[in-house]
């Protein structure tokens, strides 16, 4: 019984990280149909920012990380994505692929390709013990922060002025513009928000793994990417559910697969992705604007 509970908590905490990563990608996709590969590099650069500014005082480092990643997200939007905004989704995808490689190798150049060890908030590694179950505090913090962020995002989208504009833009961008939604502003806000989500992921990820490298973001971006597709491109609920689902599947496979097959875990995850794509090419939760119009 306790083993099952342990797996559930692990799955929820892993799923939280993936859900946040997926949400950052899904948010941008909903509005401008850009699959932002570079989101992983936002996370990676956040982690480096955290390491470089961690020395004096941890809360300050968290603020610095948030600020840096938001700025980075706004800059990439302005420089790389705005000029190609009206191109087709595949061109946008290739552009973000290029931005992702640019940022990744910029940090190879600046910081070297080797992974660096970095313990952040080491106190969180200690577990709570409830009976036989040991739950690392970090897992609880991860799940808690994710729930708070999701609630805040939901409130923003449902109740605030800009949130409603953003949902309108996601539904039909051209129509929203005709009704007075400012395209540049709403896209910039979306990028800033995806920057916040990326920064949170980088902090939690570094605290979990205690290590960072220029290629660390790739894995997270791929998982976020996969989660949004499974959940349904353009649906934020879908992105979150997809993230939790991929996290859960990963953890469950890790626990359930025979030892010989464990190294092949990722292969099973991606095989499931293909199956979902074939069974429901538009994802589990279909975004309303994702259908092709003839």
């Amino acid at each position: 019984m306790s083993a099952v509970f342990q797996v559930i908590v692990d799955a929820a905490s892993q799923g939280s990280l993936y859900a946040l990563a997926a949400l950052g990608i899904g948010l941008i996709f909903g509005i401008m149909r850009l699959v932002n590969f570079a989101h992983g590099e936002f996370i990676m650069i956040g982690a480096y920012m955290l390491m470089l500014s961690a020395a004096p005082y941890a809360p300050l480092a968290i603020l610095a990380t948030l600020a840096a990643v938001i700025l980075l997200a706004l800059l990439t939007e302005r420089i790389a994505f705005r000029p190609v905004r009206h191109a087709n989704p595949t061109t946008l995808l290739v552009t973000s692929f290029a931005v992702s490689f640019f940022l990744q190798f910029l940090f190879v150049l600046l910081q070297g390709a080797r992974p660096k060890g970095f313990d952040f908030l080491a106190g969180l590694a200690e577990p709570f013990e409830i009976g036989e179950v040991r739950i690392p505090k970090l897992n609880v913090v991860t799940i808690g922060i994710t729930l708070v962020l999701l609630a805040a995002l939901a409130f923003f989208l449902k109740r605030t002025h800009y949130g409603i504009q953003m949902r309108a833009a996601a539904l039909n961008f051209r129509m929203a513009r005709l009704l007075g939604v400012r395209a540049n502003r709403i896209i910039a806000i979306a990028f800033a928000m995806s920057g916040v989500l990326a920064a949170v992921v980088s902090i939690l990820y570094v605290a979990q793994r205690g290590e960072l490298s220029p290629v660390m973001g790739l894995q997270l971006a791929l998982i976020g990417f996969v989660s949004t597709v499974i959940g349904g491109m353009g649906s934020l609920v879908g992105a979150v559910v997809g993230g939790f689902l991929v996290g859960a599947v990963t953890v469950v496979l890790q626990a359930a697969l025979p030892v010989d097959l464990r190294p092949f875990r990722e292969a099973f995850v991606f095989a499931i992705v293909i199956v979902v794509l074939l069974a429901r090419p538009r994802g589990l939760f279909r975004g309303r604007q994702a259908r092709e119009r003839v």
């Binding site: 995808l93 990722e266 292969a267």
Partner: peptide, 24 residues
């Protein structure tokens, strides 16, 4: 199965094939 997909779904589907082959 994969050629029935278009656009982004195709990009992800083909990438999944790469990821599977790479892991294996």
């Amino acid at each position: 199965p994969l050629v029935r997909l278009s656009g982004l779904a195709a990009a992800i589907g083909t990438f999944s094939v790469l990821a599977i082959v790479y892991v294996v």
